[in-house]
């Protein structure tokens, strides 16, 4: 009950500031927090990235394995995206099997990566119908300060672009020997999230905003600026005009994020 009252007070506070044209952390309505992307941060992963988005910190690791292809795609590699909201990263995360927020995060990040076709999965076939590469993307938030969607998608694509194939011998992976060969990646999809609080539309909600938002909209764009993924969240609504406007202006923000990927 106390938490509920505190949430109401916080919400009133956030909205009161917004009505004066201010955000809790002093940013402009259409402004990202400071973003940085580091790649190759983990020597055991075939590819990795560490993303900082304001106070949010996410490590993403890409691991490769070999296995059977899907029967309907016998000559294509397999992509698997998983998220883990470990209790280390926030007092609101709990141990145990993935809850719906964890599953949603993994699926929405997966959507942009998969639908953009950025990984050339057809090049990951080793023996048709028998053996293909399986790409595991593991999203691992370390410090949760809001907007995991954008941070994790950015980390995922940065880690993928950083991925080198391990050595393959007689159908077995030698993880200790990494080749020079890069994982074939041909596009750089990113996701941009706006939220709506008390009628105001804000880019990149921080934790305090995320806790009180009415609705959010995440849009994934490929390099050409085409829309490859969307997800609306929250129990509130958007007007049609708001949605069209968000999708339009998000494109330029996507380019801003893309520029943060090193190399």
């Amino acid at each position: 009950m106390n938490q509920d009252i505190i949430a109401d007070i916080k919400r009133d506070h956030v909205i009161k500031l917004l009505n004066e044209g201010r955000r809790v952390d002093g940013r402009g309505f259409d402004e990202y927090r400071e973003v940085s992307v580091e790649v190759g941060v983990n020597q055991r992963a075939e590819g990795s990235a560490l993303v900082r988005l304001g106070g949010t910190r996410v490590m993403v690791g890409v691991k490769l394995a070999v296995g059977m292809p899907f029967p309907d795609m016998p000559d294509s590699g397999v992509l698997t995206t998983n998220a883990e909201l470990i209790p280390l990263a926030s007092p609101s995360f709990e141990r145990g099997p993935p809850d719906e927020d964890t599953v949603e995060l993994a699926r929405v990040v997966d959507r942009a990566i998969r639908e953009s076709g950025c990984i050339e999965l057809e090049k990951l076939c080793i023996e048709e119908g028998e053996l293909v590469w399986i790409v595991f993307i593991d999203l691992h938030p370390l410090d949760y300060d809001g907007n995991l969607f954008d941070a994790c998608t950015l980390g995922a694509i940065a880690a993928l672009k950083n991925t080198c194939m391990p050595k393959l011998e007689d159908g077995k992976v030698d993880y200790k020997t990494r080749t020079e060969e890069k994982l074939p990646v041909r596009d750089t999809p990113v996701e941009v999230t706006y939220c709506k609080i008390g009628g105001h539309i804000l880019l990149d909600p921080c934790l305090e905003e995320e806790e009180v938002l009415d609705a959010r909209l995440t849009v994934g764009y490929n390099e050409k600026g085409e829309i490859v993924a969307m997800q609306k969240g929250g129990s509130g609504t958007f007007t049609r005009e708001e949605i069209v406007d968000i999708v339009r202006k998000g494109r330029e923000k996507a380019e801003f994020l893309r520029q943060k990927i090193p190399g």
Partner: peptide, 17 residues
């Protein structure tokens, strides 16, 4: 006329969207 669910997968230009 508010929108309370919206998801998308695939590929659309702004006009197509």
């Amino acid at each position: 006329g508010e929108v309370c669910l919206m998801q998308m997968d695939g590929n659309l230009t702004q006009e197509e969207f």
